[in-house]
């Protein structure tokens, strides 16, 4: 089998708070293959964007440890000048936050042009402009000729997001990291943007890391899904398995919080407790244990690791074997697990 397009090994990304460094991404290993969409879901603050920024080499103040192998080459901590050869070209990212990613003082067209010219030095200006207008059309921006000359603050939230998408796909990347690419878009435009990402994958065989809170988008787009909690991966599975047979208590809790379209729920399911801050994260034992306090302490492993529960399906900590929701009948649950 060929090497994965991206191979992340024991990545640790730490931010400095006061005198100390605290890991927001804590020993994460992941692969992304060519022609594959890997979705990353997880609690807000669990380190998804920090992971993405690490791959892109965009964390200037964070400490990065471990390996990030892109097409066989370790790009963790390589000099910016080296990194710039990849960035925006073979490797590109759709940012979660369009406003800070865009320059407020520069017209939209010029911003796209800057990325384009970086890797297409010989393309004449008129040709570049034509291509940029085409790109704006492909991301469904109305009046592209006019928007070409507009400033970011003159665009709606979703239009800004589409400009970011246009920049990210301008050079047809081999690996695209899409951090919440469609949250600001209505569902019809979202569907078209997702088609565009799918095309990139199908036509060029690109790999995609899709970070999103929208589990519907995950269900429709992903080949595999990794679930993050508190800086760690707690579950990895192919998309069908993740939705039909989720194991980790966090994954199961997450799935039960979704508001359902065909069901009227009075109250939505909420995970008990609050996310500890980076500084106060438990660094030993099962990090999710404080969120399921009704579970017996000895259901958790001392040093929980990812273990393969079925081919390609990995789960961290043994607590999943015993997990039940407080309103479920415990006897029934224990019975079920011993049976299987």
């Amino acid at each position: 089998m060929s090497n994965p397009l991206l191979e992340i090994k024991n990545l640790k990304t730490s931010f400095r708070i006061g005198e100390e460094y605290y890991a927001a991404v804590d020993d994460v290993s992941l692969n992304v293959n060519e022609n594959e969409v890997l979705a990353i879901v997880g609690e807000s603050g669990s380190g998804k964007s920090a992971l993405a920024f690490s791959v892109m080499g965009l964390h200037n103040r964070a400490k990065i440890e471990g390996e990030i192998n892109f097409k066989g080459r370790n790009i963790a901590n390589i000099p910016t000048k080296e990194m710039n050869k990849f960035r925006g070209n073979e490797l590109s990212m759709i940012f979660q936050d369009p406003l800070t990613a865009l320059n407020p003082l520069m017209e939209v067209g010029r911003q796209i042009d800057e990325v384009l010219i970086l890797h297409n030095k010989n393309m004449p200006k008129s040709k570049r402009k034509k291509y940029i207008i085409e790109l704006l059309e492909r991301v469904e921006i109305p009046r592209p000729q006019h928007v070409y000359n507009q400033f970011p603050h003159e665009l709606s939230g979703g239009m800004r997001q589409r400009v970011i998408i246009a920049i990210a796909i301008a050079n047809q990347p081999e690996l695209l990291i899409a951090d919440e690419p469609t949250t600001a878009l209505d569902v019809t435009i979202q569907a078209q943007i997702l088609d565009l990402i799918r095309e990139l994958k199908d036509d060029l065989g690109s790999g995609v890391i899709l970070i999103t809170h929208d589990l519907g988008v995950v269900a429709e787009m992903a080949d595999r899904v990794a679930v993050m909690y508190a800086g760690e991966i707690v579950e990895v599975a192919d998309v069908d398995t993740l939705f039909s047979d989720p194991q980790h208590p966090y994954t199961r809790s997450l799935l039960s919080s979704i508001p359902l379209l065909d069901d009227v729920q009075d109250k939505l399911h909420v995970i008990h407790g609050i996310v500890p801050s980076l500084k106060n994260l438990p660094r030993t034992g099962c990090r999710f244990s404080s969120r399921i306090p009704w579970m017996d302490e000895d259901v958790h492993e001392e040093n929980p690791e990812l273990s393969e529960v079925s081919p390609g399906h990995f789960v961290r900590c043994t607590c999943y074997k015993h997990f039940y929701f407080p309103d479920e009948n415990k006897e029934e649950q224990d019975h079920d697990t011993t049976k299987s």
């Binding site: 609690e43 979660q96 919440e180 949250t183 600001a184 809170h213 919080s257 979704i258 939505l268 909420v270």
Partner: peptide, 17 residues
């Protein structure tokens, strides 16, 4: 205006409740 679109579904549920 899009008050919960940046939140994971559990925190979203918490904010909506």
């Amino acid at each position: 205006d899009e008050p919960v679109s940046a939140l994971d579904v559990s925190v979203q549920a918490q904010v909506l409740n």
